[in-house]
Simulated assay, not measured.
Amino acid sequence: MEKFDWCVRTGATEELDVFTTQAQFGDGYKQVAGSGINSVRKSWSVICSGSKDEIAVVRSFLKAHVTASYWWVNPWGEQKLYRIKADSIRPNFINGNFVEIAFTFEQAFAP
Rank of each mutant, 00 (worst) to 15 (best):
G34Q: 08
V66N: 02
V32F: 04
G26L: 15
G26K: 12
G34H: 10
R59Y: 11
R59C: 03
I55V: 03
T67Y: 12
L62M: 10
F25P: 00
K63S: 03
D17M: 09
R59G: 01
K63A: 08
G28H: 09
V58M: 02
S35V: 03
I55P: 00
T20I: 10
S49Y: 05
G28A: 11
V46L: 05
F61H: 06
S49L: 05
G28S: 07
E14R: 15
V32R: 02
Y29L: 13
K63C: 08
A56N: 06
S35W: 09
W44K: 01
A23V: 15
D27P: 03
T67L: 11
E14H: 14
E14L: 15
G28Y: 13
S39P: 14
C48D: 01
S35L: 14
K42N: 12
I55G: 00
V32N: 01
E14V: 13
I55F: 01
V18L: 07
S39A: 15
S45A: 10
A56T: 04
L62H: 06
K30Q: 09
I55Q: 01
C48E: 00
F19G: 09
S39Y: 15
A64I: 06
N38Q: 07
Q24T: 14
E15D: 05
A33G: 06
D27Y: 07
A23W: 12
A56L: 05
V57R: 10
S60T: 15
V58G: 01
K52G: 02
V57C: 04
L16M: 11
V46P: 03
T67F: 10
I37T: 11
D27T: 10
D53V: 06
G26D: 11
K42S: 12
G50W: 00
G36Y: 06
G50Y: 00
G28L: 10
V57D: 06
H65L: 06
D27S: 10
V18G: 01
S43L: 04
G28P: 07
H65Y: 09
D53Q: 06
T13C: 08
A23P: 02
Q22H: 05
A23Q: 13
I55T: 02
A33Q: 08
L16N: 09
N38L: 03
K52M: 03
A33I: 09
G50A: 01
K63N: 12
R59N: 09
G50V: 00
S43F: 06
S35E: 09
L62P: 03
T13R: 15
A64V: 07
K63F: 09
A56M: 04
S39H: 15
A64H: 14
E14C: 15
V40M: 07
